[in-house]
Design a protein around this nucleic acid. Structure first.
Length: 387
DNA sequence: TTGCATGATTTCTT
DNA sequence: AAGAAATCATGCAA
């Protein structure tokens, strides 16, 4: 620190005569009051410059000794001050051209992405927000499969850890290198003119270099996240057929509600629950509400597009529900004979009482008519939409 | 390998 | 926001 202060002092106040001046470069007057003094100074400067110029021709020991001598020379501060001023002037003109660069947009993009993915930024959650974001991006069905979800999070945490370790390493290396260079420059400032601004500039250069290395790290981290994310989403996209039982439950509901095949949110939940119980496709496989919605969406559109093709299926399920209804009625009758009257069936399956009591065939014709427009309400509109 | 079935996603409409 | 329609991508039987 005293070195720096000394340099500042040299820069700010010391002139060639060795006395404090008004600041800035103060050359001796061309016609000094004392001619012999001026001549002496000139000789001194010539002498010191000669010594500096020849120092490289000498052996290390000789140079070392000479260096000490130069440091103690009475004209040294003055010469040092002049050199500093000259350097500062040239340095300023160079710096004007290379500094004040705007923030790198690519770096900003990378930073934003890492922040959004939960890799950079505060530790909390460890990418839970990112997983949720990925879930939201991949549509309603996402975010329900906890196995894939936790897998994604685990991998993201891994990436996060690697990223932070590497970043820390880079920062440490950067600091070490900066300290080293600063020490070196301070050391050198004893023998050559180095201003604090120059040191600062050098530090900036080092930081820029290290941030460009950091950018590479950020870039590869982003790539890793993108790969993980695409894999995660691809895995979700992989289609697996529902089990036969699940399809049966959904079909039963669909054909028994053909007049209005739009299950409410509660009904969807119920169906999802029911399907999940019967599904046996593997560990962790469940049918979600959004999958039920997908299924009904697909079913409605495909049924509407080709009613003929689904006729057989419709008959089958209508017969099935009719049988169920008959059983239910029989049970109800039996109940009414033995106990007080109770509701034979609960839940969505028996909502459409009128439908249940029709004969399978009649009902199908009726419902087919509904879809083809031969039934008053609800039916497809002129543009083909239901309702 | 091919064609159909089917779950999921995307885009558009209401 | 929910649903329709189109499309994608995969499963599966022939």
């Amino acid at each position: 620190m005293d070195e720096q202060a000394r340099i500042m002092q040299t820069l700010g106040g010391v002139n060639l005569s060795g006395h404090p001046g008004q600041g800035g470069m103060t050359l001796p007057p061309p016609h000094g009051h004392d001619g012999t003094d001026v001549d002496g100074r000139k000789q001194d400067i010539g002498d010191i410059l000669h010594q500096i110029m020849t120092i490289t021709d000498q052996s290390l020991d000789e140079a070392q000794a000479k260096k000490h001598g130069l440091n103690c020379h009475r004209m040294k501060p003055a010469l040092f001050s002049v050199l500093c001023e000259i350097k500062e002037k040239t340095g300023l003109s160079i710096r004007g051209a290379q500094e004040e660069e705007p923030p790198d947009p690519q770096l900003m993009r990378l930073d934003n992405m890492l922040l959004a993915e939960g890799v950079a930024g505060p530790e909390k959650g460890g990418g839970a927000a990112a997983a949720a974001a990925a879930a939201a991006a991949s549509g309603g069905a996402a975010g329900d499969n906890s196995i894939e979800h936790s897998d994604y999070r685990a991998k993201l945490t891994q990436i996060r850890q690697i990223y932070h370790t590497e970043l820390e390493k880079y920062e440490q290396a950067c600091n070490e290198f900066t300290t080293h260079v600063m020490n070196l420059l301070r050391e050198q400032s004893r023998t050559r003119p180095i201003s604090p601004k120059e040191i600062e500039r050098m530090v900036n250069i080092i930081h820029r270099k290290f941030s460009s290395i950091q950018m590479q790290l950020k870039q590869s981290t982003c790539e890793a996240v993108m790969i993980l994310r695409s894999r995660f989403l691809d895995a979700r996209r992989k289609r697996r057929n529902f089990s036969k039982q699940a399809t049966e439950i959904l079909n039963e509901y669909f054909y028994s509600h053909l007049s209005n095949p739009y299950p409410s949110e509660e009904a969807k939940e119920e169906l999802a629950k029911k399907c999940s119980i019967t599904v046996s496709q593997g560990v962790g496989t469940t049918i979600t509400v959004s999958q039920v919605s997908n299924w009904f969406g697909n079913k409605r559109i495909r049924y509407k597009k080709n009613i003929g093709k689904f006729q057989e299926e419709a008959n089958l399920y209508a017969a099935k529900t009719a049988v169920n209804a008959a059983h239910a009625v029989a049970a109800a009758v039996q109940n009414s004979q033995t106990n007080s009257p109770t509701t034979p069936n609960s839940g969505f399956q028996m909502k459409d009482e009128e439908f249940q009591l029709d004969s399978a065939e009649n009902k199908n014709t009726l419902l087919t008519n509904m879809f083809t427009g031969g039934y008053s309400a609800p039916c497809y509109q002129s543009d083909g939409r239901i309702q």
